[in-house]
Design a protein around this nucleic acid. Sequence first.
DNA 1: GCAGATTGTTAGCCTTGTCTAACTTTATGC
DNA 2: GCATAAAGTTAGACAAGGCTAACAATCTGC
Lengths: 152, 152
Amino acid sequence: MTNNDHQDAVAHEPEPRTADSRAEAFHGVRAARRNELAEDYVELIAELIHTQGEARPVDIATKMGVTAPTVAKTLDRLARDGLITRAKYRSVFLTEEGRALAKECRHRHEIVLRFLLSLGLDSETAERDAEGIEHHVSERTLALFAAFANRS
Amino acid sequence: MTNNDHQDAVAHEPEPRTADSRAEAFHGVRAARRNELAEDYVELIAELIHTQGEARPVDIATKMGVTAPTVAKTLDRLARDGLITRAKYRSVFLTEEGRALAKECRHRHEIVLRFLLSLGLDSETAERDAEGIEHHVSERTLALFAAFANRS
DNA sequence: GCAGATTGTTAGCCTTGTCTAACTTTATGC
DNA sequence: GCATAAAGTTAGACAAGGCTAACAATCTGC
Ligand SMILES: [Mn+2]
Ligand SMILES: [Mn+2]
Ligand SMILES: [Mn+2]
Ligand SMILES: [Mn+2]
């Protein structure tokens, strides 16, 4: 990730001594928000490569529910950030970094989803909520989710 | 909310027959994302009014961890959307609609937080994760969270 | 009651993420 | 092998949400 420095920076309080703990929480949330889209894209791209053999922009657009130009621009940003490689009119490939992120995201998605299902949620709602929640669970929370899902 | 029509629209599939269920999930997530900031602001404003007697931009900026001009611009949007009223150089007030949203948000925040704590999470992490997760839990999930937190 | 500090506003810049319209390239079917 | 369809790109608009710099209003302490 390009912007993860912020994530880390927050840890040792870069603020000029305004360090309200609430402000720090919001900083963390904003940092997470900045990565959401990239995470969803690489996760989807990995899945398409796995199930279809390749990740084509048209399929990304369909699954994401956005238009083709939106996908094009987003892919350009992902390429700039070193998560994918692409060539004009060709399908999309993940870089090593992209693959690593995709794997991590899939793992998180999986755990959050299993957790919600194990709480008794219907699968459609679980899928929808997981898609949003997955970007906002810390390692600790994830561990607790995994433990709960396994134990039940 | 101004943009909530989207939320509802999604329910009876407005897409031209591309209705991938994944796409619908992402539509829902994007709709939730559009309301996150407004939700955080009205919740904070309500809290400031309650604890300080009034909500001043400077305090909003401190708690949110952003600069004053950012707050100013955001407050203008909230006013435009009918959630607050404000006058130049004066503190901020919630409209009826704003109060309703704030109440709902506080309720959701509370439940998500209690739920995370009841899972065994430390309070700092719980607060941080709740701040992000709260915007992505459906009514159903919230009900399950509440039940779990109460039962434990 | 005024100087200086604090608070608030305005202007303007930047990036992200969405869209439509128009065009180009590639794939497909006969 | 060519016409048409499908996929992809490019250009450009627009709103949100962040920032800094500069200025204006208000508050505070003496
Ligand atoms: Mn997601
Ligand atoms: Mn996901
Ligand atoms: Mn929040
Ligand atoms: Mn909250």
